[in-house]
Design a binder for these strands. Structure first.
Length: 578
RNA sequence: GCUGGGUUCGUAUAACGGUUAGUACUCAAGAUUCUCAAUCUUGCAAUAGGAGUUCGAUUCUCCUACCCAGUACCA
């Protein structure tokens, strides 16, 4: 009989969702959608001590940002559903609210001999562990030690009854059978066998807070929610035998979900799983969204770092899964169509921040100029640049636009100007915010760099200064806002003369005002004078952009206009006089 | 320690038991351009080690090494 596909992502709200968790959610989502099934979110908050305020909201917002939208568990308003309804017959989806459900199941196991009451206090257990450690052994509460402990297997019936009534810190433990081989199947790993003698008697339910532990809550809820496949992290593989035994003990073997255990995400270098520390150290986020903890420490997020959710999701999907061919670019719909659990890698995947960059660049190039303009405008505004939708709108502000639609002196630009900048610089950008670093000088003149927080001093290059004494002709304060090493290299007296004439030529140029027109005219002018093209162009760029490397001269001139071009050249000559 | 899982270029991965072990990222070189970037071309680079099965092993079996997880009244 074909069962409806129903899978769940069951995070614990003990902190922000890690990117590995996002991947688990994504694989669940893809699996469900491909089979026309349901993707459910369930909040596993059975540990009252580790609850972190805001974590649940964070998890849902993060999944939402990624486009991983639950069919059940969360309502259209993005809140976890608390009461059952036709659309949510399995509510509530927060385990703390399902508290009354679990006790009866724990007692059912006891009644059928699959579990027992344990009265050992945490102090007694700690002592047992310490004693075992002293003799270089590990204490395990299992079929050999349980007969030495205080529980309903060892205590007289009336004593058990008394303790149940009079004390309130007892637990229910699973009675793991002896010497039984549990035969399991994993959708990713294949057949696995484990002998129950290596397993312990896990606590299933705690009287102290009347809550189940993960194992009981998980099995009961997966059963009640009619989960068909459990796709979860590898850290759960060791408890799979217990879960199999629980399904058997409850008599739910016929509807037991199939299991798939995903490998972990590993740190880029060295060994071990990806941690927040690695991200901080190597400069990449490990969380989808920014997160600030109770101590006020902030962790960066992919969203805030400027990643497109599509790029993040695509990158994550390819970490430990492949479509079986060479394709690397996948939209969510394409992932849904192509996904398959048997193409999921068994081994852990080392996360590669470079590849994440590459994905973002690819997705940036896929965006239209219009979309990128929409995203760039707020960033420009943050930097103090004004963008107006139409030239007329700015008339009241007294803007005088050049041919490209910009007023450099008042820092007011039309959307068309911004779009044109986007169009010819998008090949150079990885993130939308890169446009500012690439093209800030198309919005701000060098003399205003400092005021707009743009630096061209050598110190910002990050590299140590050259040791060659000849390389150091100018002091930073003398050359700013021009890049000192480029001043050194290109700002030679004989070249400066030529640059000055280039400025005059542009001022007097009355041909076609386009990148192509300006480019051809400049080339003809420089070559006609038999000047060294490279040296003149680099020195000109230094005057116009503050650095000898960057956008093409004609690209710059065509945007900033005649007046600004000659003004910048004049400023550079004046500033760098010596 | 014990139990379980894992191991193909630096990274992510491909390869009915038969390929010159492929692709992408990174890196390097060349081409191109006024520079830088982009782009194009080329290149560097891997089956953890050892046995066995087989005509033939990256692929199957075993051993060793290394890595990861679990070993809580946490999930």
């Amino acid at each position: 009989m074909e069962r409806r596909t129903r899978v769940r992502f069951a995070p614990s709200p003990t902190g922000p969702l890690h990117m590995g968790g996002v991947r688990t959610a994504l694989y669940n989502y893809l699996y469900a959608k491909q089979r026309g099934g349901d993707f459910i979110i369930r909040i596993e908050d059975t540990d009252s001590h580790r609850f972190v305020p805001g974590a649940e909201e964070y998890i849902i917002e993060a999944l939402n940002w990624c486009g991983i939208i639950p069919d059940e568990g969360v309502d259209s308003n993005g809140k976890v559903v608390e009461t059952a309804s036709p659309r949510h017959p399995h509510a509530p989806y927060r385990q703390s609210q399902r508290k009354p459900i679990y006790r009866a199941y724990a007692e059912q196991l006891i009644a059928n001999g699959y579990a027992y009451y344990a009265f050992d206090t945490s102090e007694e257990l700690e002592k047992a562990r310490a004693d075992a450690e002293a003799s270089k052994e590990t204490f395990i509460y299992n079929q050999v030690t349980r007969m030495k402990m205080r529980n309903s297997l060892t205590l007289p019936e009336d004593e058990v009854k008394r303790l149940l009534e009079e004390t309130s810190d007892w637990t229910v433990r699973f009675k793991m059978p002896e010497n039984t081989v549990v035969k399991m199947d994993d959708l990713i790993r294949g057949h696995i066998e484990v002998n129950t003698d290596t397993l312990d008697d896990k606590v299933l339910w705690k009287r102290a807070d009347e809550l189940p532990t993960y194992h009981l809550a998980n099995i009961v809820d997966d059963h009640l929610m009619e989960i068909s496949e459990v796709i979860r992290g590898e850290e759960w593989l060791p408890s799979l035998p217990l879960h199999y035994m629980l399904y058997k003990a409850f008599g739910w073997e016929d509807t037991m979900p199939r299991f798939a255990h995903l490998s972990l995400l590993l740190k880029p270098v060295g060994n071990g799983k990806l941690s927040k520390r690695d991200g901080d150290k190597m400069g990449f986020p490990v969380f989808p969204l920014k997160w600030t903890n109770a101590e006020g420490e902030t962790s960066r997020g992919y969203r805030e770092d400027g990643y497109f959710p599509e790029a993040f999701v695509n990158m994550l999907a390819m970490l430990g899964w492949n479509p079986g061919d060479d394709r690397e670019m996948f939209s969510m719909e394409e992932l849904v169509a192509a996904f398959s659990l048997d193409k999921v890698q068994k081994a852990g995947a080392k996360f590669n921040p470079e590849k994440a960059h590459w994905y973002n660049r690819e997705y940036l190039r896929l965006k239209t100029d219009e979309e990128l303009t929409d995203l760039l405008v707020p960033i420009l505004e943050e930097h103090g640049i004004n963008v107006v939708d139409c030239p007329k709108c700015a008339l009241t502000a007294g803007a005088e636009f050049n041919a490209a639609g910009g007023d450099l002196s008042k820092h007011i630009f039309t959307r068309d100007y911004v779009r044109s900048v986007v169009a010819f610089t998008k090949e150079r950008a990885t993130f939308v915010k890169d446009f500012w670093d690439i093209a800030s000088y198309l919005f701000v003149s060098p003399e205003d760099f400092e005021r707009f927080g743009i630096s061209r001093s050598a110190a910002t290059e990050g590299a140590p200064r050259p040791v060659d004494p000849r390389a150091k002709v100018y002091d930073d304060s003398l050359t700013a806002p021009f890049l000192a090493k480029d001043v050194d290299k290109f700002w030679k007296p004989e070249i400066v003369e030529m640059v000055e004439k280039v400025g005059a030529f542009v001022k007097g140029y009355d041909g076609m005002w386009s990148v192509e027109g300006v480019e051809a005219a400049l080339e003809e002018f420089i070559k006609g004078n038999e000047w060294p093209m490279g040296k003149v162009m680099n020195a000109t760029r230094l005057a116009l952009a503050g650095s000898a490397s960057g956008l093409g001269i004609a690209d710059i001139v065509a945007r900033i206009g005649k007046k600004e071009t000659s003004a910048r050249i004049a400023y550079a000559i004046d500033r760098l006089r010596h």
